[in-house]
Amino acid sequence: MKESEKDQSRRKFIRNLGALGLGSLAFSSIIGGSCSPKKSELASGKTVKLLTNNNELVEVDSAYISTLNKNLSSNHNSESRKGLPGKKFVLVVDLAKCQNARKCMDKCQSVHQLRPDQHHLNVLVMKESENTAPYYMPKQCQHCDNPPCVKVCPVDATFKRSDGIVLIDNERCIGCRFCIAACPYSARSFNWYEPIDAEKYKDVPYDIEKNVPQKKGTVTKCTFSADCLREGKLPYCVSACPNGVYYFGNIYEDSVTNGTSGETVSFRKLVEENGGYRLMDDLGTAPSVYYLPPKNRAAVPKEENSHV
């Protein structure tokens, strides 16, 4: 009895192994060469829409894609809740360099399929008091280590990973918007409308690290471009900046890399030498975003005043 059970489980294991092997075979056929005749024989005629890394929508025959979906997509998302090992990401924003080019904002909105009035990243004109000069301040989610938004989420939809990133799972979110109320940085946005191009992205599997495709009735937020980080690339906004405002890196490694010049420096020294600070640190949120003071405010037109 026991013997046969063992046998059965072994057979099962072998069968699974076989499936795995077949799976990886199909997988490699996608990764490999472009259009060998063998593949067109396999084609099922059904196509599936996929979003590429370059944010382009492509249609692929479902025969090539099914295994990939099964083995990566769901697994990928549960993996996404853990965070990258050995990393704790940090962003340094050099306010002295920001000239309001807004390339970061544009890139962010297009990558995350946001409407023009939705901001994961917002460049603000700040003016502390009457006699101080205004300056530009790019503001994204601060990825706090004591995140008020995560505290209040009733369903674990928004969560903090070990690498410091605060993400939102828009397949979990119930749309109560408590996190928006709780965030002192106004960093979150809600899908009040049907997201743009909802029809186009309808069949695209959800990527939690990019939070696309967006879903109506859920909250969306800056992801620190976790999808890029997984590939070892800098976040979208960081590499879109033409003015060298952003430094991004791993605080454990004490290094940050400028998204514009590619220059890599010690995080500690950069913050120490330039008097870096965190936004509203007195609230106890412990942000992962540091700001270097806006030393040079001459670039800001004086009429661009904000209400403070």
Binding site: C153, D156, A157, R172, I174, F178, F190, N191, G217, T218
Partner: peptide, 26 residues
């Protein structure tokens, strides 16, 4: 009515976090 996704009301009972004041309220 205020929920963005009333179809996911059941999430509160399955994924409910006791840390959230909303769960206390419910």
């Amino acid at each position: 009515v205020d929920m963005g996704r009333p179809d996911r009301l059941w999430h509160i009972f399955v994924y409910g976090r006791i840390q959230s004041p909303i769960v206390w309220d419910i």
